[in-house]
Amino acid sequence: MERILAEHVPDVTVLGLDDVVAYAEPVEDAPTFAGNALLKARAGAAATGLPTVADDSGLCVDALNGMPGVLSARWSGPPKDDARNNRLLLDQLSDVPDERRGAHFRCAVAVVVPGGPEVVVEGRMDGRVVREVRGAGGFGYDVLFVADEAPGLTTAELDVAGKDAISHRGKALRELAPRLPGLLGAADPG
């Protein structure tokens, strides 16, 4: 988030959770990515009094009717475990032919300005799920996902700049970036 926003709105300082007083993060129980992003952004804004950007994202697999979707991080059950989630995905798709392994990553990014507006934007990265884990970068399902915009490489095999350029999160943040100065100007000074 910091890399992409700094490229488009260099005058904005991005603080992470480690930079603010700790607060209880909400349970992500909304049925949509946008709903979960708003839950997190509202909680951050309420706890810190600062304009807050939060996201929610996941992998939606065509052959699985859009699953794991909003359950992506916890699809294989608690505790969250990327390797277990990836094994479950491979097991679920084991008999699905390559031409039916279409999928996309979706990301919703929400901005909540205390005393001001709430905005949600979305980004999407289309591709397919491969049959074996490849790559060491990224996280989650990146080791199993090949984007249409980078054929032949999983998103875990892309360098950071390459992934930022095509990712669902990158697309959403680049859509949001030009709107941030106006949103921040709408913040309630009191």
Rank of each mutant, 00 (worst) to 15 (best):
R169F: 04
L38F: 01
G77M: 08
G135L: 08
D126M: 08
H168T: 03
A108T: 07
G58T: 08
R74Y: 15
E2W: 00
V111A: 01
L183C: 04
R134L: 11
D11S: 14
G16N: 00
L71N: 15
V109L: 04
D62E: 13
D55R: 05
Y23P: 11
E157G: 06
F145L: 05
A54T: 05
G170H: 05
L184D: 02
V113H: 01
A63C: 10
L153W: 14
P114M: 09
S57H: 02
L183T: 06
A165P: 01
V160T: 14
A41C: 09
A54W: 00
R106H: 12
P189N: 11
A156V: 11
P181S: 08
A54S: 10
R128H: 14
D62Y: 01
L71R: 15
K40H: 12
A150C: 10
H104T: 07
D148K: 10
A83Q: 15
E99D: 15
D95G: 13
A73T: 14
A108V: 04
R169K: 09
D56V: 05
F139K: 07
L38A: 07
R134P: 08
D91N: 09
S57N: 01
G115N: 11
A161M: 05
G190M: 15
A172N: 06
A108G: 10
A37N: 07
A73I: 12
D56C: 01
P178A: 08
G66V: 07
G116M: 04
T52N: 06
R179K: 15
V120L: 03
P181T: 09
V112W: 00
L59P: 03
G162I: 04
G115L: 09
L176H: 02
C60G: 09
